[in-house]
Simulated assay, not measured.
Amino acid sequence: MQRQRVNELLQQRSARFGQFDESLKKRTGIFGLKTKKDMQSSIDILKQIVMTDNNIFRETKMLLDYKDFEKSQIAEQANEFDGRINGYIKTISKLQREQERLTAEVDALEKSTRFYEGMLVLLGLSIVGAGIFLILRRQKLTKA
């Protein structure tokens, strides 16, 4: 919208400059000389050109200010996103270390569980073997 205003002002300036050029060629005085009215008309058109130039500068400054504002906003968002990303990276690293620790702990618990299961199977076999031994011994004693 701001650029459209600047373009419109530039078109106005171009049109006024054309009017100024025509007013310079205008000679309505005696013997083809310029009159005071002709010169005043040229001066008035020049004043309008200067006012249009001032408006163009003002609008262009507003455009540049807006562009600078957008740049600063983008820079602030980039810094904010960098902060978030760094936070996410720290959290992910922390969670990975915790996962590695828990995985090592699970492995250790599984090893100890396998050991105790083996001991339980061995104890069970020993009890069964002892039971069979006692039963066979009792049968021998009762037969003899």
Score class of each variant (00 low, 15 high):
residue 105 E to R: 12
residue 79 N to V: 10
residue 71 K to E: 07
residue 35 T to W: 02
residue 61 K to G: 08
residue 83 G to I: 06
residue 123 L to V: 15
residue 22 E to Y: 06
residue 67 K to Y: 04
residue 22 E to N: 13
residue 79 N to H: 13
residue 140 K to Q: 14
residue 131 G to L: 00
residue 73 Q to K: 08
residue 136 L to P: 04
residue 86 N to I: 04
residue 103 T to W: 07
residue 103 T to M: 13
residue 24 L to A: 06
residue 79 N to E: 13
residue 32 G to Q: 00
residue 92 I to C: 07
residue 57 F to K: 07
residue 99 Q to D: 00
residue 83 G to L: 09
residue 43 I to Y: 12
residue 107 D to T: 03
residue 115 F to R: 11
residue 84 R to F: 03
residue 90 K to H: 07
residue 17 F to L: 15
residue 61 K to T: 06
residue 109 L to F: 11
residue 40 Q to M: 14
residue 118 G to L: 00
residue 59 E to Q: 03
residue 54 N to M: 10
residue 124 G to P: 04
residue 31 F to C: 10
residue 81 F to K: 07
residue 46 L to P: 00
residue 15 A to Y: 05
residue 26 K to A: 13
residue 96 Q to P: 02
residue 83 G to E: 10
residue 20 F to H: 14
residue 11 Q to D: 12
residue 93 S to G: 11
residue 125 L to G: 02
residue 102 L to K: 11
residue 30 I to L: 15
residue 73 Q to P: 01
residue 56 I to N: 07
residue 130 A to H: 04
residue 97 R to W: 00
residue 103 T to Q: 12
residue 58 R to L: 12
residue 90 K to R: 12
residue 101 R to M: 04
residue 118 G to F: 02
residue 66 Y to K: 04
residue 108 A to S: 13
residue 91 T to F: 01
residue 89 I to F: 05
residue 19 Q to T: 05
residue 14 S to N: 05
residue 9 L to S: 05
residue 121 V to M: 04
residue 53 D to P: 02
residue 94 K to I: 11
residue 87 G to E: 10
residue 71 K to S: 05
residue 107 D to M: 07
residue 136 L to W: 06
residue 39 M to V: 09
residue 77 Q to W: 00
residue 56 I to H: 09
residue 23 S to P: 06
residue 94 K to M: 15
residue 94 K to T: 15
residue 85 I to V: 11
residue 97 R to E: 10
residue 111 K to M: 02
residue 95 L to E: 14
residue 103 T to V: 11
residue 53 D to W: 00
residue 70 E to C: 10
